[in-house]
Amino acid sequence: MSVSALVPPLAQGDFFTDRSAGAGNSCVAGDGLCPKWMVDNFDQYTGPLVRHAELTIVAVAIGFVIAFALALIAERRRWLVGPVTQFSAILYTIPTLAAFFLLLPITGRGFVTAQVALVAYTLLILFRGVRTGLDGVPPETVDAARGVGLTEQQLMWQVKLPLALPQIIAALRVASSTTVGLATLAFFAGAGGLGGKIYDDLTFKSNVVLASLLCVLLAVVLEIALVLVQRALTPWTRAVNA
């Protein structure tokens, strides 16, 4: 399914803006890379940037809650790991645009449709991350924890999850970076974001570059935030070996 086939039902307008008349600026008129234009028009991008951040953070947060709950349930019912992984792998392979198209009749245009697709996409990464973390807890640590009298719940929250944190946060980093990228398509579901700006004027380099830079910036900021969280929560990982 090509992008153009989806455009009529999803997005309004087209991918080109005629700037040859107004701008009176040869760089802009020639679709070039114009730093001055970027600075002058920056405020047009802040709204979409904030929207993009919302799309990403909400999707990763919801995806995490679901994946985390499933991973905890699978701790007691090991047989669930296979089916949950397979199901979320199928969700992962559905093309995002196809998902929007399929969801339109159910959830309509807008934020919710975009969220459903983005959340579905994060599940595989996050579920696997939490499971890898929990499965990596040394068995002797678990044995000793039970042996000295921790209840199953204390074992999970005081021992297993803290030890799984590095893997969990690593998965959150991957999920948030990929979601920043995927959220550029949310515009096709009518959910806005920086994708809206990019597809507004695909031929104008200044526009495409500025919108893309903001995507990268958002991804980097989220990445740094998560690294800082990890550093604060897992001091033992930085202790120097004897």
Binding site: P138, E140, V142, A144, G147, V148, G149, P162, W236
Partner: peptide, 19 residues
């Protein structure tokens, strides 16, 4: 759990809490 808190437990692999 209550019983185990009253019984010291040492294993070969030690099983200290790394965190």
């Amino acid at each position: 759990a209550e019983l185990r808190r009253e019984i010291g437990y040492v294993i070969q692999q030690i099983g200290l809490f790394p965190h």
